[in-house]
């Protein structure tokens, strides 16, 4: 565990907490993509199956349980409790266009052809693109509430911090996982446009509005 990794994990946790607080306090999930949340739940479930096979540390197991349970709680809030506020018409991204290529890619490019390893690889590929329905929703409506922007910023920062962690681990421990590094870079690149808008608009107190 190094500082970048810890900061990345905490940023990830912060993103999820911001999201849950936003939904709970405003009693609304307007502006949020349920499809992205379904993809994230799928990511955590397929990646953390090793919870039952491999023990790494208390921290590791605890965070995995938190990520799985909070993602399921978010889906429950969006599709059941606050369903009436869910912006279904704008959340029209076809997630099969992301899931199917990730399934194929994980079957072809993986480090070991076992069930757990392929599912882990699938989750890494899927995570890199799971935010696309949310970004698509923001681009369709042309704006995002500032709380949604904070959520996206924290979520995007997490993988960017992981990249620093991977660089550190490569030099300090000689450890690297090419699949995770490649997908993590793709994931971070997808957020770049949003990061730019966040820094130039939201941090200056303006609403995140896309240029017409």
């Amino acid at each position: 565990m190094n500082l970048f990794r810890l900061a990345g994990d905490l940023s990830h946790l912060l993103a999820i907490i911001i999201l849950l607080i936003k939904i709970w306090k405003t009693r609304s999930c307007a502006g949020l993509s349920g499809k992205s949340q379904i993809l994230f739940a799928l990511v955590y479930i397929t990646r953390y199956l090793d919870l039952v096979t491999t023990y790494i540390s208390l921290y590791n197991s605890f965070m995995k349980v938190i990520f799985i349970s909070t993602s399921l709680a978010t889906i429950y809030l969006m599709y059941s409790k606050f369903r009436a506020t869910y912006d279904k018409n704008h959340d029209s991204f076809r997630i099969e266009f992301l899931i199917i290529p990730c399934v194929i890619l994980s079957l072809v490019i993986n480090s070991n052809f076992t069930v757990l390893e392929v599912l882990w690889t699938f989750s890494i590929y899927l995570e890199s693109v799971a935010i696309l329905p949310q970004l698509f929703l923001v681009s369709k409506t042309g704006e995002a509430e500032s709380i949604t922007s904070h959520y996206l910023f924290a979520l995007g920062s997490y993988r960017a911090l992981y990249i620093l962690n991977w660089i550190y681990r490569y030099y300090a421990e000689g450890h690297y996982e090419l699949i995770a590094i490649f997908a993590g870079c793709v994931q971070t690149i997808l957020y770049c446009d949003f990061f730019y808008l966040y820094v130039t608009k939201v941090l200056k107190g303006k609403k995140l509005q896309l240029p017409a």
Binding site: H12, R47, I56, N60, M63, S111, Y162, N165
Partner: peptide, 10 residues
């Protein structure tokens, strides 16, 4: 030492 198959990151 962590086995490379045991992914120790989240």
């Amino acid at each position: 030492k962590v086995d490379p198959e045991d992914h120790d990151e989240l």
